[in-house]
Amino acid sequence: MSIETILSELRGIKGYKSSGLMDFTGELLISDSADESTDLELASATFNDIFRGAHEASEKVGLEATTEMILNTPNGIIIILCSGVDSEPHLHLISVLEKDGNQALAKMTMKKLMPKFVTELS
């Protein structure tokens, strides 16, 4: 199964706008969008930085690896999931949903898809 096909499994989720698979530095490997208004390249780079910043900030106070981050804003929901710092390749998966999108299902689906991406790309 191609990684594009795996990513397209997120499309059926209510409120889905776009998604992308990045390496841990934030470089977008593939993306999928149901809504052209979202600049996923910018969103993924920006939120990947936030994710890495959150990771550093949490490590400073003794917390361990951050594995997922969800940001709810008045206009949308951004979810980022990490494959794990020890996984090879080390990937980050981002999804952007509308404000009233099904966040729980998106998170569960992303968790289910992440091992498939790692397998496909290893």
Binding site: S37, A54, S58, G62, L63, E64, A65, T66, T67, E68, M69, I70, L71, N72, T73, P74, N75, G76, I78
Partner: peptide, 17 residues
């Protein structure tokens, strides 16, 4: 375009502790 202000903004992070 994601947010004009902080109203309804929420940040959630999962980690091991």
């Amino acid at each position: 375009d994601f947010s004009q202000d902080n109203k309804d903004t929420l940040f959630r992070m999962e980690f091991s502790f």
